Simulated assay, not measured.
Amino acid sequence: MQGIKNLTQGPINRQLFNLAMPIMATSFIQMAYSLTDMAWVGRLGSEAVAAIGSVGILTWMSGSISLLNKVGAEVSVGQSIGAQNQEDARNFASHNITIALIISLCWGGLLFIFADPIIRIYELEDHITADAVQYLRIVSTGLPFIFLSTSFTGIYNAAGRSKVPFFISGAGLVLNIILDPLFIFGFGLGTNGAAYATWISEASVFLIFVYQLRHRDALLGGFPFFTRLKKKYTYKILKLGLPVATLNTLFAFVNMFLCRTASEQGGHIGLMTFTTGGQIEAITWNTSQGFSTALSA
């Protein structure tokens, strides 16, 4: 199969390590997006950080939902590669990307339309709520880029080429680091500037993935990104990815109401502390997730 790294040859420990390290690094990069936004927005004050943090839980929830297609791609494409069935591998890749687009448009639309009542769950001051709603609406329009890039990442991981998503995500993070101060302070956009910087960075990552797959790699011999869904492939992807996505989304959902408790008890300072601490805590499970993904592949 074209563009595939054979994971069944060589010492298992080395294969696991070489595959897991870039996956873990890519997870840290995704976490660093939020930390970078918080670091720059922190110069605007604690209220701005609270606004970003309240949306951060929803971003986490969105990432949890996107695991449906990431895990679905890693396992279904990986199994097809192992069975030397390139047709199934291509079909599973196309189905994962198509399902990711459908879910992202639906979920992003819900967040955009119901941004105000969702943010009011935290019971923040009106001006902080207004900033958070604007931030959420900007970020929600970029969710298709995130979901599609996550699917591309899963496909590359299944092919044993986890370094490609790492380098592409790293390029997006560097761009985000550059654009954050420019948009927040240079253009005077405040918290919205952080959202625009993240949106542009995520769109750039998506476009680099498309370019890589279409013009640089012959992964799986090339495959269509979008296809008409067939029951055989759709059912297996949902069966593999839905439990993982549901569990992680439930965890994010619980944390959303813990954030509300933090806000009730400590105001925006309580919420800011809880959400910032959660970002740091993510280092732990990102590490374990890297080896889990490598083992699945």
Rank of each mutant, 00 (worst) to 15 (best):
W60C: 14
W60A: 09
W60L: 14
W60H: 10
M61W: 10
M61D: 06
S62I: 15
S62C: 09
G63W: 10
G63P: 08
G63R: 11
S64V: 04
I65F: 09
I65A: 04
S66I: 00
L67P: 02
N69M: 15
K70C: 10
K70F: 06
V71H: 09
V71Q: 03
G72Y: 00
G72T: 06
A73I: 01
A73R: 05
A73K: 01
S76Q: 08
S76I: 06
V77C: 05
V77G: 10
V77Y: 09
V77K: 13
G78I: 04
Q79M: 14
S80V: 02
I81K: 05
I81F: 11
A83S: 12
A83G: 11
A83T: 07
Q84T: 05
N85L: 04
N85W: 08
Q86V: 15
Q86L: 15
E87K: 13
E87M: 13
D88H: 13
D88W: 02
A89M: 05
A89Q: 12
A89N: 13
A89G: 15
R90K: 15
R90M: 13
N91A: 12
N91K: 15
F92W: 14
F92E: 13
F92G: 11
A93L: 03
S94L: 01
N96G: 14
N96W: 09
I97T: 09
T98A: 02
T98Q: 08
I99P: 08
A100E: 01
I102C: 06
I103F: 07
I103R: 02
S104T: 03
S104L: 02
L105P: 10
W107S: 11
W107L: 07
G108F: 00
G108W: 04
G108L: 00
G108A: 06
G108H: 06
G109D: 01
L110Y: 07
L111A: 10
L111V: 07
I113Q: 00
A115R: 03
